[in-house]
Design a protein around this nucleic acid. Structure first.
Lengths: 245, 245
DNA sequence: TAGTGGTCTAGACCACGGT
DNA sequence: CCGTGGTCTAGACCACTAG
């Protein structure tokens, strides 16, 4: 059986990307079954009228995604396991939405405050300088899921309460032209204080899942610091990750 | 100021890798300060006597690690933030060891059991078939940190209790020639049951951090399924991740 | 307009895995 | 031994960014 592959040289889409997309969708749709040898890059290149480096670039991008495995002296084959969701900088809003939960957000605080030592250190600003502070309660089906407290450096974004309630913070940042680059996260657990318990409709001392995160843009600026608490009965962190060999 | 760069063509180490290492250590040591332009791949190639694709390959590997950022029409520059620990398939043993904690492990169970429905589904074996079951308590400085319960398919590895107490499970798997490829993790929290509380020297209903994980090798086989519980006062998950743009 | 990275070609030789 | 992927070369043209 031969897989149908073709590239459109008139398209502005890079050739290696076109090929990668076709291979990926073939794997996705089961046309390329797990274990199949893709073998012979040189022959594949000839068949498509491409050079070998171009074909390699396409294959490499899928190897990086974990869909293919290369073995010297053997060939390139489709990975058996259903690797699907790679780890990415997850947005709670997007997570809930893609799970069909139709999240709602209530903005409880949206103001400027003087940066505490903790916030100043995380954002790389001087202690006591003004930063945005927003506190939000996120719910689904009328049940609270998480309490989100975020700090942002001034002048980066204008934080409209209406927009914050309609979508997630990350979407607003991307829409404002901020290119997210990396984030440092810590996930832990602790007992709920009385105040936290009331916000999330839990009892005092109930277990809570906690996450702190600092996000950086591609110039290295910290663009957001957040401390979040989640109801563990309603939310957990789930992700797939690839081993760096 | 010119950075000293050179490659050894007699070395078995690939040229692009030599260059990547030199750039990485220069960034690490602060010789290349954040924001510095590396610019002009063509000139850099000429200076080293390499071709441009080779230089690009070196640079690309550092971009993938999050150390460099490329901008069309501008150049390649060193990222400002201290991106250091990329997310990888973390081993609790290695985490503790690199934190200077000298972990100790007590193997409580090391036997074969019939796979429950949950274990069978995770490992992709038939329910009721025999699988390895190991339960371990990991401590540091005499304090329990985590309770680890793992299941492995039969015939993959021979699980020596002495080795399990001396090192981590992942190291044993790698040493046995298993190439780890990907893992699916879920991190959550819940209240400790009476049994769990006693194991970890917590009180009943104390918050616990939980993690379940299925690990796959490069042929797509599930090689390990684990359910772990951690004392949140002693351990949290910390990692850096890069955004896929 | 000039300079940068992004893409692409058509070859080449080597190292490793399996036969 | 042969076939595979791994590495490398010396060019080329294009798209985007800045000044």
């Amino acid at each position: 059986m031969q897989l149908e592959l073709s590239v459109d040289r008139g398209s502005p889409v890079p050739l290696y990307f076109q090929l990668a997309q076709q291979l990926e969708s073939a794997i996705e749709h089961g046309t390329l079954t797990p274990g199949t040898l893709l073998g012979n890059e040189i022959e594949l290149a000839a068949r498509l009228g491409l050079s070998r480096p171009t074909v390699r670039q396409a294959i490499q991008s899928l190897v990086d995604k974990g869909l293919l495995v290369r073995r010297r002296g053997v060939g390139t084959q489709v990975v058996h396991s259903k690797v699907r969701r790679p780890l990415e900088l997850s947005s709670l809003y997007d997570d809930l939405e893609s799970a069909g939960q139709r999240p709602t957000t209530t903005v409880l605080v949206n103001t400027m405050v003087a940066a505490s030592a903790e916030v100043a250190a995380a954002l790389g600003v001087t202690e006591g300088s003004e930063v945005h502070c927003i506190e939000r309660l996120r719910s689904a089906h009328g049940e609270p899921i998480a309490y989100l407290c975020n700090y942002l450096p001034p002048g980066l974004l204008d934080l409209d309460t209406g927009q914050l309630e309609a979508t997630g913070l990350y979407r607003l940042m991307r829409a404002a032209g901020i290119t997210l680059h990396s984030a440092r996260q810590t996930i832990g657990a602790r007992a709920a204080t009385a105040v936290e318990a009331e916000r999330l409709r839990e009892r005092t001392d109930a277990p809570l899942l906690t996450m702190q995160r600092v996000t950086f843009d591609d110039t290295g600026r910290a663009v957001e610091y957040g401390t979040h608490t989640y109801r563990p009965s309603r939310y957990s962190f789930e992700f797939q990750l690839l081993v760096r060999n």
